[in-house]
């Protein structure tokens, strides 16, 4: 089954890396097909950043995300820009401190990813907290796969920190699922 995922936020949050790690985890550690397409051009400039992932057990023909099944947003701008694209019945995942929701979104998964990262003393890992949350909420990827992909993507001295960030987010995701 084809799943389209879009990550959105502002420049500097590591939005491109989120897409890269997600697709990499699917391909290298979960034995799926996946395509990651970073946004080039005007969309990648001027503060707004987004990256796109398609995951499938079958061959992927069209590689782009048009109407995401899952939209992960970490800024108000990205929310306003991309939320209208979300597929009917799609899942919206937001950083609750950074996105003020309008009405009518239905079942939104909310996490204070940036606040959690700040509590850890490293705001920079907010994207990894969010990736953990995304993994726990969606169950598209195994936790093992995303962990391996995260650890492979960061310098050795930051591995512990990132692993903790991922785990914290993941636990929040599992909690959200149970609710």
């Amino acid at each position: 089954m084809r799943v389209e995922i879009k990550f959105g936020g502002y420049g500097g949050q590591g939005i491109i890396l989120m897409g890269n790690i997600t697709a990499r985890a699917a391909v290298l550690y979960d034995n799926k097909n996946a395509i990651f397409t970073p946004s080039y051009g005007p969309e990648a400039r001027g503060g707004a950043a987004s990256s796109n992932v398609v995951i499938s057990d079958d061959e992927i023909d069209y590689p782009y995300v048009t109407h995401p099944d899952i939209l992960v947003v970490m800024s108000q701008g990205a929310y306003e820009k991309f939320a209208p694209l979300l597929k009917d019945g799609g899942k919206l995942i937001v950083d609750e401190d950074l996105v003020k929701l309008k009405n009518g979104e239905g079942d939104v998964a909310k996490v204070a990813a940036t606040r959690i990262a700040e509590e850890m003393g490293k705001r920079i890992v907010a994207n990894i907290v969010m990736l953990g949350f995304f993994t726990g909420v969606t169950k598209i990827l195994s936790y093992e796969a995303i962990k391996k992909a995260v650890l492979a993507a960061v310098p050795e001295r930051f591995r512990e920190l990132n692993e903790e960030a991922l785990e914290r987010g993941y636990k929040k995701g599992i909690e959200w699922q149970k609710e």
Binding site: R24, V27, A34, I35
Partner: peptide, 10 residues
């Protein structure tokens, strides 16, 4: 082409 060049895949 630019699209194929910049996309990541297995």
């Amino acid at each position: 082409d630019e699209s194929t060049a910049h996309m990541y895949e297995k």
